[in-house]
Design a protein around this nucleic acid. Structure first.
Lengths: 100, 100
DNA sequence: TGATTATATTTTGATATAATAATAACCTAA
DNA sequence: TTAGGTTATTATTATATCAAAATATAATCA
Protein backbone atom coordinates (compact mmCIF):
# COMPACT_ATOMS: atom_id res chain seq x y z
CA UNK A 1 0.00 0.00 0.00
CA UNK A 2 1.33 3.40 -0.98
CA UNK A 3 2.04 6.17 1.48
CA UNK A 4 -1.01 8.07 0.33
CA UNK A 5 -3.20 5.01 0.64
CA UNK A 6 -2.00 4.61 4.21
CA UNK A 7 -2.80 8.21 4.96
CA UNK A 8 -6.30 7.82 3.61
CA UNK A 9 -6.77 4.62 5.60
CA UNK A 10 -5.66 6.34 8.77
CA UNK A 11 -7.84 9.37 8.14
CA UNK A 12 -10.89 7.27 7.46
CA UNK A 13 -10.27 5.33 10.66
CA UNK A 14 -10.03 8.62 12.51
CA UNK A 15 -13.40 9.73 11.17
CA UNK A 16 -14.90 6.33 11.92
CA UNK A 17 -14.28 7.10 15.57
CA UNK A 18 -16.74 9.98 15.25
CA UNK A 19 -19.30 8.03 13.27
CA UNK A 20 -21.30 6.72 16.22
CA UNK A 21 -23.51 8.92 18.40
CA UNK A 22 -22.35 7.32 21.63
CA UNK A 23 -18.70 7.85 20.77
CA UNK A 24 -19.49 11.44 19.87
CA UNK A 25 -21.10 11.87 23.28
CA UNK A 26 -18.06 10.39 24.98
CA UNK A 27 -15.70 12.62 23.05
CA UNK A 28 -17.77 15.71 23.79
CA UNK A 29 -17.76 14.86 27.47
CA UNK A 30 -14.03 14.30 27.51
CA UNK A 31 -13.50 17.65 25.81
CA UNK A 32 -14.63 19.23 29.07
CA UNK A 33 -11.88 17.42 30.88
CA UNK A 34 -10.67 13.95 31.84
CA UNK A 35 -13.33 11.63 33.22
CA UNK A 36 -13.37 8.21 34.78
CA UNK A 37 -15.45 5.47 33.24
CA UNK A 38 -17.90 5.48 36.10
CA UNK A 39 -18.69 9.16 35.64
CA UNK A 40 -19.08 8.73 31.91
CA UNK A 41 -21.47 5.87 32.47
CA UNK A 42 -23.57 7.91 34.88
CA UNK A 43 -23.56 11.00 32.70
CA UNK A 44 -24.51 9.14 29.55
CA UNK A 45 -26.82 6.69 31.31
CA UNK A 46 -25.38 3.67 29.60
CA UNK A 47 -24.26 0.24 30.65
CA UNK A 48 -20.69 -0.12 31.81
CA UNK A 49 -19.71 -2.70 29.17
CA UNK A 50 -21.07 -0.52 26.39
CA UNK A 51 -19.11 2.53 27.54
CA UNK A 52 -16.05 0.39 27.97
CA UNK A 53 -16.35 -1.06 24.48
CA UNK A 54 -16.60 2.31 22.84
CA UNK A 55 -13.71 3.57 24.94
CA UNK A 56 -11.58 0.68 23.77
CA UNK A 57 -12.34 1.57 20.15
CA UNK A 58 -11.29 5.16 20.78
CA UNK A 59 -8.22 3.95 22.64
CA UNK A 60 -7.14 1.63 19.85
CA UNK A 61 -7.31 4.46 17.35
CA UNK A 62 -5.24 6.67 19.64
CA UNK A 63 -8.08 9.16 19.99
CA UNK A 64 -8.11 8.91 23.77
CA UNK A 65 -5.62 7.82 26.39
CA UNK A 66 -6.15 6.61 29.92
CA UNK A 67 -4.36 6.37 33.24
CA UNK A 68 -5.26 4.55 36.38
CA UNK A 69 -5.98 6.67 39.43
CA UNK A 70 -6.47 4.38 42.35
CA UNK A 71 -9.49 2.25 41.69
CA UNK A 72 -10.66 4.44 38.81
CA UNK A 73 -9.45 4.68 35.25
CA UNK A 74 -9.38 8.15 33.88
CA UNK A 75 -9.79 8.83 30.17
CA UNK A 76 -8.67 11.92 28.33
CA UNK A 77 -8.47 13.23 24.78
CA UNK A 78 -5.10 12.38 23.28
CA UNK A 79 -5.24 13.07 19.56
CA UNK A 80 -4.75 16.81 18.98
CA UNK A 81 -6.98 16.70 15.91
CA UNK A 82 -9.99 16.14 18.15
CA UNK A 83 -9.86 19.63 19.58
CA UNK A 84 -9.61 21.16 16.12
CA UNK A 85 -12.55 19.13 14.90
CA UNK A 86 -14.57 19.88 17.99
CA UNK A 87 -14.07 23.61 17.71
CA UNK A 88 -14.69 23.67 13.99
CA UNK A 89 -17.72 21.48 13.49
CA UNK A 90 -19.10 19.99 16.66
CA UNK A 91 -19.27 22.75 19.25
CA UNK A 92 -21.46 25.06 17.24
CA UNK A 93 -24.03 22.38 16.55
CA UNK A 94 -24.66 21.66 20.21
CA UNK A 95 -27.48 23.70 21.64
CA UNK A 96 -26.45 23.05 25.20
CA UNK A 97 -22.97 24.42 24.61
CA UNK A 98 -22.30 28.12 24.75
CA UNK A 99 -20.43 29.36 21.71
CA UNK A 100 -17.17 31.03 22.63
CA UNK B 1 -35.61 11.37 20.31
CA UNK B 2 -34.52 14.68 21.80
CA UNK B 3 -33.20 17.54 19.72
CA UNK B 4 -29.69 16.91 20.96
CA UNK B 5 -29.93 13.22 20.17
CA UNK B 6 -30.96 14.12 16.64
CA UNK B 7 -28.02 16.47 16.30
CA UNK B 8 -25.63 13.77 17.43
CA UNK B 9 -27.21 11.28 15.04
CA UNK B 10 -26.84 13.69 12.15
CA UNK B 11 -23.27 14.56 13.06
CA UNK B 12 -22.28 10.93 13.34
CA UNK B 13 -23.84 10.24 9.96
CA UNK B 14 -21.85 13.13 8.54
CA UNK B 15 -18.62 11.70 9.86
CA UNK B 16 -19.56 8.24 8.64
CA UNK B 17 -19.41 9.68 5.13
CA UNK B 18 -15.69 10.26 5.70
CA UNK B 19 -15.04 6.92 7.30
CA UNK B 20 -14.20 5.01 4.14
CA UNK B 21 -10.99 5.57 2.17
CA UNK B 22 -12.74 5.48 -1.19
CA UNK B 23 -15.25 8.10 -0.13
CA UNK B 24 -12.41 10.23 1.18
CA UNK B 25 -10.72 9.96 -2.21
CA UNK B 26 -13.92 10.96 -3.96
CA UNK B 27 -14.41 13.93 -1.67
CA UNK B 28 -10.82 15.05 -2.08
CA UNK B 29 -11.19 14.88 -5.85
CA UNK B 30 -14.42 16.82 -5.79
CA UNK B 31 -12.80 19.51 -3.65
CA UNK B 32 -10.75 20.40 -6.72
CA UNK B 33 -13.95 21.00 -8.63
CA UNK B 34 -17.01 19.23 -10.00
CA UNK B 35 -16.35 15.95 -11.75
CA UNK B 36 -18.40 13.49 -13.77
CA UNK B 37 -18.59 9.89 -12.67
CA UNK B 38 -16.54 8.74 -15.60
CA UNK B 39 -13.63 10.98 -14.68
CA UNK B 40 -13.80 9.92 -11.07
CA UNK B 41 -13.74 6.29 -12.10
CA UNK B 42 -10.69 6.84 -14.29
CA UNK B 43 -8.86 8.93 -11.73
CA UNK B 44 -9.48 6.54 -8.88
CA UNK B 45 -9.14 3.40 -11.00
CA UNK B 46 -12.23 1.76 -9.59
CA UNK B 47 -15.21 -0.06 -11.00
CA UNK B 48 -18.12 2.07 -12.10
CA UNK B 49 -20.67 0.43 -9.77
CA UNK B 50 -18.41 0.90 -6.79
CA UNK B 51 -17.95 4.60 -7.49
CA UNK B 52 -21.65 4.96 -8.10
CA UNK B 53 -22.56 3.27 -4.83
CA UNK B 54 -20.29 5.46 -2.78
CA UNK B 55 -21.60 8.52 -4.60
CA UNK B 56 -25.14 7.52 -3.74
CA UNK B 57 -24.18 7.26 -0.07
CA UNK B 58 -22.67 10.74 -0.19
CA UNK B 59 -25.73 12.01 -2.07
CA UNK B 60 -28.17 10.58 0.45
CA UNK B 61 -26.36 12.30 3.29
CA UNK B 62 -26.45 15.60 1.38
CA UNK B 63 -22.66 15.74 1.23
CA UNK B 64 -22.61 16.00 -2.56
CA UNK B 65 -25.09 17.05 -5.19
CA UNK B 66 -25.24 16.24 -8.88
CA UNK B 67 -26.58 17.56 -12.13
CA UNK B 68 -26.87 16.02 -15.52
CA UNK B 69 -24.80 17.55 -18.29
CA UNK B 70 -25.70 15.85 -21.50
CA UNK B 71 -24.78 12.23 -21.22
CA UNK B 72 -22.65 12.81 -18.14
CA UNK B 73 -23.62 13.31 -14.53
CA UNK B 74 -21.57 15.86 -12.73
CA UNK B 75 -21.03 15.66 -8.98
CA UNK B 76 -20.03 18.51 -6.70
CA UNK B 77 -19.54 19.19 -3.00
CA UNK B 78 -22.76 20.50 -1.50
CA UNK B 79 -22.40 20.47 2.30
CA UNK B 80 -20.43 23.55 3.36
CA UNK B 81 -18.95 21.68 6.30
CA UNK B 82 -16.86 19.63 3.88
CA UNK B 83 -14.69 22.55 2.89
CA UNK B 84 -14.07 23.44 6.53
CA UNK B 85 -13.15 19.89 7.36
CA UNK B 86 -10.96 19.56 4.30
CA UNK B 87 -9.00 22.70 5.07
CA UNK B 88 -8.66 21.89 8.74
CA UNK B 89 -7.73 18.23 8.83
CA UNK B 90 -7.45 16.61 5.45
CA UNK B 91 -5.45 18.93 3.23
CA UNK B 92 -2.39 19.05 5.42
CA UNK B 93 -2.14 15.28 5.65
CA UNK B 94 -1.92 14.78 1.93
CA UNK B 95 1.64 14.72 0.67
CA UNK B 96 0.61 15.40 -2.90
CA UNK B 97 -1.22 18.58 -1.95
CA UNK B 98 0.63 21.83 -1.55
CA UNK B 99 -0.24 23.59 1.68
CA UNK B 100 -1.68 27.05 1.12
C1' DT C 1 -8.00 -13.48 52.75
C1' DG C 2 -12.66 -12.47 51.13
C1' DA C 3 -15.90 -9.00 49.65
C1' DT C 4 -16.84 -5.05 47.06
C1' DT C 5 -16.29 -1.72 43.52
C1' DA C 6 -14.58 -0.49 39.00
C1' DT C 7 -13.30 -1.75 34.47
C1' DA C 8 -12.28 -4.89 30.54
C1' DT C 9 -12.98 -8.70 27.60
C1' DT C 10 -15.49 -12.33 25.27
C1' DT C 11 -19.34 -14.32 23.14
C1' DT C 12 -23.58 -14.37 20.71
C1' DG C 13 -27.03 -12.92 17.63
C1' DA C 14 -28.81 -9.19 14.96
C1' DT C 15 -27.99 -5.69 11.73
C1' DA C 16 -25.31 -2.84 8.60
C1' DT C 17 -21.84 -2.26 5.25
C1' DA C 18 -18.82 -3.79 1.47
C1' DA C 19 -17.37 -5.71 -3.08
C1' DT C 20 -18.69 -7.84 -7.10
C1' DA C 21 -21.51 -9.26 -10.88
C1' DA C 22 -25.48 -8.73 -13.52
C1' DT C 23 -28.88 -5.91 -15.23
C1' DA C 24 -31.55 -1.77 -16.00
C1' DA C 25 -32.13 3.00 -17.25
C1' DC C 26 -30.85 7.08 -19.55
C1' DC C 27 -28.90 10.13 -23.08
C1' DT C 28 -26.95 11.01 -27.63
C1' DA C 29 -25.98 10.31 -32.21
C1' DA C 30 -26.35 7.80 -36.40
C1' DT D 1 -35.28 3.28 -33.88
C1' DT D 2 -31.04 1.15 -32.89
C1' DA D 3 -26.34 1.27 -30.99
C1' DG D 4 -22.99 2.82 -27.87
C1' DG D 5 -21.54 5.17 -24.02
C1' DT D 6 -22.67 6.57 -19.20
C1' DT D 7 -24.70 5.94 -14.76
C1' DA D 8 -27.82 3.62 -11.36
C1' DT D 9 -29.85 -0.22 -9.20
C1' DT D 10 -30.34 -4.86 -7.61
C1' DA D 11 -28.90 -9.29 -5.79
C1' DT D 12 -25.59 -11.96 -3.61
C1' DT D 13 -22.10 -13.03 -0.57
C1' DA D 14 -18.63 -11.78 2.69
C1' DT D 15 -17.31 -9.00 6.32
C1' DA D 16 -17.80 -5.58 9.91
C1' DT D 17 -20.27 -3.42 13.47
C1' DC D 18 -23.57 -3.29 17.19
C1' DA D 19 -25.95 -4.30 21.64
C1' DA D 20 -26.49 -7.19 25.36
C1' DA D 21 -25.21 -10.66 28.54
C1' DA D 22 -21.89 -13.22 30.85
C1' DT D 23 -17.53 -13.51 32.60
C1' DA D 24 -12.88 -11.98 33.85
C1' DT D 25 -9.47 -8.82 35.84
C1' DA D 26 -7.74 -5.37 38.97
C1' DA D 27 -7.71 -2.43 43.02
C1' DT D 28 -9.40 -1.30 47.59
C1' DC D 29 -11.00 -2.20 51.99
C1' DA D 30 -12.77 -4.87 55.89
Amino acid sequence: MSKDEEILEELSEFFKAFSHPVRLKIIINLMEGPQCVKNLGETLDMSQPSISQHLSILRNKGIVGCRREGSLICYYIKDPRVKKLYNLLIKEELSWQEKS
